[in-house]
C-alpha cells in the first residue's frame, strides 16, 4: 500500500503556506515602502533624520 497521498499532502501544505506567507510579506513591504516614499517625498531630508541625534 502506498502512502504517497499523505506525503504529497504534507509537502503541498507546507509549500502552500510558505508561498502564502512570502507573498503576503512581500506585498506588505511593497505597499508600506510606497506609502512612506509618498509621504516623505516633499521632504529632502532622509527618513528618520529628525529623530536621530
Amino acid at each position: 500500500m502506498t502512502h504517497l497521498p499523505y506525503i504529497l499532502a504534507s509537502y503541498g501544505l507546507f509549500a502552500g503556506l510558505a508561498i502564502a506567507l512570502t507573498v503576503n510579506a512581500t506585498l506588505r513591504l511593497k505597499t508600506a515602502r510606497a506609502r512612506l516614499a509618498l509621504l516623505e517625498r516633499p521632504s529632502s531630508r532622509p527618513p528618520g533624520a529628525s529623530s536621530s541625534p
Binding site: A25, T26, R28, L29, T31, A32, R33, L36
Partner: peptide, 9 residues
Amino acid sequence: ARLRAAVME
C-alpha cells in the same frame, strides 16, 4: 520582512 513592513507602517 513583516517587521520591516510594520516599522514602515
